[in-house]
Design a protein around this nucleic acid. Structure first.
Ligand SMILES: [Zn+2]
Ligand SMILES: [Zn+2]
Ligand SMILES: [Zn+2]
Ligand SMILES: [Zn+2]
Lengths: 147, 147
DNA sequence: CCTAGAATGTTATAATGTAACAATTAAAAT
DNA sequence: ATTTTAATTGTTACATTATAACATTCTAGG
């Protein structure tokens, strides 16, 4: 995400937070901004490093708290298989993410496949399971890296 | 898994390993045995603790090596969202696991849903993605815990 | 202003995972 | 059977990821 897109995104996100009575403080915004600008998912400690370059020297809880907030607001997703975080491009309606993760170039692509959703619903129904948080992370090689 | 089932499972597994030219050494068998006997997924350090009760005092690399071997042989699965390991009941034909994980009671249920598989294949095809390791972990409440 | 709750700062530590190299053991070759 | 080789295990140290606990500061609402 480039500077212009970022500015636009942050404006949207601020509106969104305000409407929810959630406070997108400067620190939280800084963490979000670092994540959105990155081409790759970032770990908590990479974010800490990023914050240090722009700012003072925050301690781990600072960044973990910001990450918790951003997840609650649906502004970022955590990738369990990478211990890293990516921004969400469609935070306006809450959703669980489905991710294609390239193990070669590190690119992460958030998809939204309704067939997959249906299958998950079917599993839920079959098993009498109440699904609350699906973790769908598809690791492999992206189209470019196969060439 | 009870003692009788375990014995039976270990016998099968030994045959399987032998046929692959893989060596299920006593340590590896001990780790597998701890995992299969447990009702809940176990973390590496819980396994270390378990090994210490039966044996000497192994260091972390010991258990991580055993876990790596067991995963390679398809005898166990790692749950990324829990940093923990569960046994596989169908190691005879290799597969990626699909898991229902109850956040109340901790029970983990490995399912094998072909609709879900199809959806994954469709995503692969649509995106030109070469899927190598799907991580499918469905967190929520199991049927019993909803009552 | 005053106060209550939210957010942040700070220190310490817990939990998870790996690098590097030495010692041992088991398989394979001679 | 002995030698050679590769696989496995032991050991130490450390890297990475994450949280508990408590103090301080800030902010919104009365
Ligand atoms: Zn999203
Ligand atoms: Zn790629
Ligand atoms: Zn399995
Ligand atoms: Zn349950």
């Amino acid at each position: 995400m480039n500077q212009k897109e970022l500015t636009q995104h942050l404006k949207q996100v601020k509106t969104l937070c305000t409407s929810q009575g959630a406070r997108l403080t400067p620190q939280r915004e800084q963490v979000l901004s670092l994540i959105m600008r990155s081409k790759k998912p970032l770990t908590a400690y990479e974010l800490l490093e990023g914050m240090r370059q722009e700012d003072k020297t925050p301690a781990p809880p600072t960044v973990y708290r910001a990450l918790e907030f951003l997840q609650e607001q649906g502004l970022i997703h955590k990738l369990e298989s990478l211990h890293a975080f990516v921004g969400c491009n469609h935070p306006e309606h809450p959703h669980a993410g489905q991710f294609l993760i390239c193990t070669d170039c590190g690119e992460v692509n958030e998809v939204c496949n309704h067939e997959l959703d249906k299958s998950l619903n079917a599993v839920e129904k079959n098993q009498g399971f109440n699904l609350q948080r699906p973790v769908i992370e598809l690791l492999g090689r992206c189209a470019s890296c196969q060439k």
